[in-house]
Design a protein around this nucleic acid. Sequence first.
DNA 1: CTTAATCCTACCAATGCGGTAGGAGAAACC
DNA 2: GGTTTCTCCTACCGCATTGGTAGGATTAAG
Lengths: 164, 164
Amino acid sequence: MIFTTKAEYGVRLLVELGRQANDAPVALKTIAENEGLPLAYLERIVALLKRADLVESTRGAHGGYRLAREPEKVTMDEVVLALEGSVAPMSCFVDESDDTRVLCSHVDDGEACATKLLWLRVQGGVIEALRRTTLAELVAFSAKQDVAQSDQTLGSALPLQSTA
Amino acid sequence: MIFTTKAEYGVRLLVELGRQANDAPVALKTIAENEGLPLAYLERIVALLKRADLVESTRGAHGGYRLAREPEKVTMDEVVLALEGSVAPMSCFVDESDDTRVLCSHVDDGEACATKLLWLRVQGGVIEALRRTTLAELVAFSAKQDVAQSDQTLGSALPLQSTA
DNA sequence: CTTAATCCTACCAATGCGGTAGGAGAAACC
DNA sequence: GGTTTCTCCTACCGCATTGGTAGGATTAAG
């Protein structure tokens, strides 16, 4: 069970934005360079965040993106939902309509499969974990990481960017 | 985020075995027909369960598979681990060694990415949900489904707990 | 010795993922 | 006004994985 890089990159992008205290927009190019991620791909990802009103943009020179809310008010369930489309442990769990309907292809219509109970619990566990994590927490976490890194050997920090 | 059909089919297979009270082996063909799943594919899946000592087999005519343990003692974290190889919310979370090492390709060696905290929590939520679900529960659940189906021709009597 | 089952391995089509390319609009700055 | 620097949009593409198939070898019951 795995999230795609959309979630990974999107969350990283938001963390980068969250680290900026001021409300000056940040260009995607800056973020791409900071994180070592492909710019063109990030563009498509940030579009998802904008569509979900998690991010605001200003076009033109000196433009870029900023958070639409304070990091404390951004929970990860919203973020991952915007990026991945759904939080479903099984393909038949993807909710087409607005209610969380279970559509399992291998069972009679309207019937639940034997594994419904299990996947519901897993889904609940994931959503709960996502919801209790805010962007502010991740920003603070990454800041702590930075301190730890700069405390250690600065020179021997391998520039191991696997960016081909 | 999605599990593959290996987990789905594998759990269903175990539920089918769990429904048999006696210890007579059940042929895969029977299970395939009951569940409407491709036999050849099930063969590969049940091999994973056998390798993890969740299932025992007897070859030859009148052979088949049976549970290696009572359903009460089979927890789903073991099952999913055997079927999917790992329970990792992100590709860099796949543990190659025995400890749960985080190997993130986009960060310096030994360093955690900004999203480590998040994926750790998600992974924890999933594993906890899996661990507290036993095969016996799923067997009982599927039995209840059967009763509901034969009683009222429409099994919507289940209190589907939404994203609470 | 036929039949019914587990085993094993190679193969294959489709899908989705991660990434690229090439532009068209919009605003700042000279 | 033109250039630069951004956001935006859409089409395309290689590749790995998934789900499934094929074909056979092995084992045991009757």
